[in-house]
Each structure stands twice: as C-alpha cells, then as structure tokens.
C-alpha cells in the first residue's frame, strides 16, 4: 500500500538541473525526447518549395548612355567658357580609345633627354656613395663628364 502511493515528483521538477543527478538513464532519455519535441514544434518554417535561382543571360539596363555612347551633356564653343571646354575634352575622351592620352604622355620627355639625364645621374649618384679618397677621381673631369676611373681591384699573381 505504501509502495504504490509513493509520492511522484512532477515532470517540471525532474527537469531541473539538480534533480537530474539522481535520475536513472531511462527517465533521462524520456525527458530529453520530450524536450526536443517541444522545441521542434515551436520552430517556424516556410512551407514553400525550394527557390531555384536561374542564371539569366539577359541584363536589364534602362539608360540610353550605355546604348548610344552619348557625349557629355555640357558643352561650350569658341571659348565662351574655357572651364567647360576643358571638361568636354576630358569627359568625351574617356569613351574613346586611350591613344590620345598616350601621345601627350610621350611629348613630356623625349627618349634622348631621358638618356642624357640618366647618363649624368650615374655619375652623381656614384659620387654620393664614393668614399672621400675616391671622390677626387670624380672631380678630375670638370666638364660635366663625370666618369668613374676607379679601377677594379683584382688579385695579381706574383711573378717569379
């Protein structure tokens, strides 16, 4: 009589952390399952078929600028507004080939001048790094033609 009427603990009480130590494996499993069920039931999901993104080969573009290669919308002629004229050249050359830019780049420094500059640069930089006693050798030649006359030191085989 006393065994059957043993007071049972409520489920909520058994679920508590400190009560789980004394539980046997079976009731533990049962409790876990019930908990999982509650969680999965409470989750919401969209009841839709899976969306498939198809790669499209058509791109929509509503601007005429791309289609017709239109010019820049501000213009000035015969020197009315020099600022705008400069801007016109700049904006309209963007669309064209970059050949125009290349020509102006070349005009800056010619090949010859470049070669001349580098020629003298070799001497100038060489002088900077030369030691004091070697510097005299650079100074010898006055007419801008600074030349390194320093001979390379090599091992000389003693003669017999």
């Amino acid at each position: 009589m006393a065994a059957t009427s043993k007071p049972k603990l409520s489920k909520n009480l058994l679920r508590m952390k400190f009560m789980q130590r004394g539980l046997d494996a079976e009731t533990k499993k049962q409790l876990e399952e019930e908990e999982k069920k509650i969680i999965s039931e409470e989750h919401w999901y969209l009841d839709l078929p899976e969306l498939k993104e198809k790669e499209s080969f058509i791109i929509e573009e509503q601007s005429f600028m791309l289609c017709e290669d239109l010019l820049y919308g501000r213009m000035s002629f015969r020197g009315f507004n020099p600022e705008i004229e400069k801007l016109m050249v700049q904006m309209n050359s963007k669309n064209k080939d970059e050949e125009v830019e290349d020509v102006s780049m070349e005009a800056d420094v010619s090949d010859e001048e470049m070669a001349r500059r580098y020629e003298s640069l070799v001497g100038t930089i060489g002088k900077k790094f030369a030691k004091k006693r070697d510097r005299a050798q650079y100074d010898e030649d006055e007419n801008g033609n600074i030349k390194s006359v320093k001979t390379k030191k090599t091992f000389l085989k003693p003669q017999e």
């Binding site: 501000r74 213009m75 000035s76």
Partner: peptide
Amino acid sequence: LAPECEIIQEIGKLYPLEIVF
C-alpha cells in the same frame, strides 16, 4: 548628344556659346 552629331558641330561654329543638355 550622339558622338558624330553634325548639328552640334555646325552650331559650335556660329557663335561663342555654352549649352547644357
């Protein structure tokens, strides 16, 4: 605004002017 527009080229020769499209 077409790149080879004759109208604009001819108008540009008439007077000094500024224009915005």
